[in-house]
Nucleic acid binder design. Structure first.
Length: 117
DNA sequence: TGGATGACCTACA
DNA sequence: CTGTAGGCCATCC
């Protein structure tokens, strides 16, 4: 029986590709959230999967340091190798932090466009 | 095929 | 506020 399994391979590549494109579009001095990316990717209910995608993105040239959680906390800083690297990069871009070490989403939150509309 | 993992989010006590 | 629980989707073994 004929099977078209190659379509499956393409799908996962598509998902990663979406996340890569969005993160790559994050402007200077701005940050976005996993939920926002997930929504644009079409998996709004699974911000978790977005983080997983970034897990592979950290090996890429993507500014993963501009991706934070809902509260603006640097939840993924540990995966940068140096926990201080993420904060230092954002501060270097003019991003402000709160006492809790969270990004001031009020001023630096950036929502990606639905490029897949 | 299915359990385990993951840089999350929301809700409830 | 903290802890617990469920969900959600993709990947690995």
């Amino acid at each position: 029986m004929p099977s078209i399994k190659q379509n499956k391979e393409k799908k996962k590549q598509d998902f990663f590709d979406k996340v890569f494109l969005i993160v790559e579009k994050i402007p200077y001095g701005k940050v976005t959230t996993y939920g926002a990316i997930a929504e644009v990717c079409g998996i709004k209910s699974s911000a978790r999967t977005v983080g997983w995608a970034l897990n592979g993105a950290k090996d890429s040239n993507l500014p993963c340091h501009r991706v934070v959680n809902r509260y603006g906390a640097l939840s993924g800083k540990i995966h940068f190798g140096d926990p201080n690297l993420m904060e230092d990069l954002l501060r270097s871009e003019g991003v402000e932090f709160n006492e809790d070490g969270c990004v001031n989403l009020k001023k630096h939150l950036w929502v990606p466009e639905k490029i897949f509309d």
